[in-house]
């Protein structure tokens, strides 16, 4: 089941890129959303994310990790493009 969903998501991403149907920014957004869905698939189907003995600290830890990941990537791009005024 997990395999099917993840392969469908991958092919979908390839298809939207090759179909030239969307603008550049939209396209980027769509494929990033598809990639995020892939994370959910991996966590839910393969990584047994919700399992734990005792309180689920690893869920909060990983959530915080995602927040900081977003901060670093978005912040760096925002800064290094001088507030979005340079191409990237």
């Amino acid at each position: 089941m997990g395999l099917v969903v993840s392969i469908v998501l991958t092919l979908l991403a390839l298809w939207v890129v090759q179909a030239h149907a969307l603008s550049h920014a939209m396209l980027l957004a769509v494929i990033l959303v598809l990639a995020v869905l892939q994370i959910v698939v991996q966590l839910a189907f393969f990584m047994h994310f919700t399992e734990s003995a005792g309180p689920r600290y690893h869920v909060s830890a990983l959530a915080l990790g995602f927040v900081f990941t977003f901060c670093i990537v978005a912040g760096s791009i925002w800064i290094m493009t001088f507030g979005g005024t340079q191409p990237y």
């Binding site: 991958t10 991403a13 390839l14 494929i31 990033l32 990639a35």
Partner: peptide, 10 residues
């Protein structure tokens, strides 16, 4: 796959 390859062939 998404950021490097797909973005690259966009």
């Amino acid at each position: 796959f998404t950021v490097v390859y797909l973005q690259g062939v966009m």
